[in-house]
């Protein structure tokens, strides 16, 4: 049986985007940081660092690390870390191997981390890395501006 590889090195961003949080927020309170670390136990350090960075500020690299780390985590057992960077066209089901349950887990993890809600139609429409990225950008931007 293959032990899941941790995604220690997250590929550089391949999509240009504006950061989802428009302004830097500064360090998180200790309890908020611990909550994120708690929620991401078992995930790669890079994923946790990305989530913390995303909550604290708005680095594009943080965004990539968090999103990719979560999606990669829920791939099937034995999945290898790809040599090539995932592109926006990388398909979540066909290319990364995420089945419907894994997709729901990944989305639930994102919902919990960022306190957002993703409805069924949005989940069904999320087919590629770019879709996931745009969905999360939109949710975070909406929440930030609210």
């Amino acid at each position: 049986m293959t032990v899941r590889k941790k995604i220690e090195a997250i590929p550089n961003p391949t999509l240009t985007t504006k950061p989802p949080y428009p302004e830097r927020r500064g360090p998180l309170a200790r309890h908020a940081r611990e909550e994120i670390e708690h929620q991401l136990r078992g995930f790669s350090d890079a994923t946790t660092a990305g989530a913390l960075g995303l909550r604290e500020g708005s680095q594009v690299a943080d965004f990539e690390a968090c999103l990719y780390g979560i999606l990669f985590f829920f791939r099937p057992a034995g999945s290898e870390t790809p040599d090539d960077l995932p592109s926006g066209q990388t398909r979540l089901r066909e290319d990364l191997g995420l089945d419907s349950l894994s997709m729901m887990e990944a989305m639930f993890k994102i919902e919990e981390l960022f306190d957002i809600n993703i409805d069924n139609a949005e989940l069904v429409a999320t087919k590629t890395i770019a879709d996931a990225r745009h969905l999360l950008e939109e949710k975070l931007s909406l929440r930030t501006s609210a």
């Binding site: 899941r4 099937p76 057992a77």
Partner: peptide
Amino acid sequence: CEYSDWTFPGQERFDSSLLR
């Protein structure tokens, strides 16, 4: 209640996709 905290004999044989 979080599988990632569990420790047990031979757990390296079981992938997180089963345990979670």
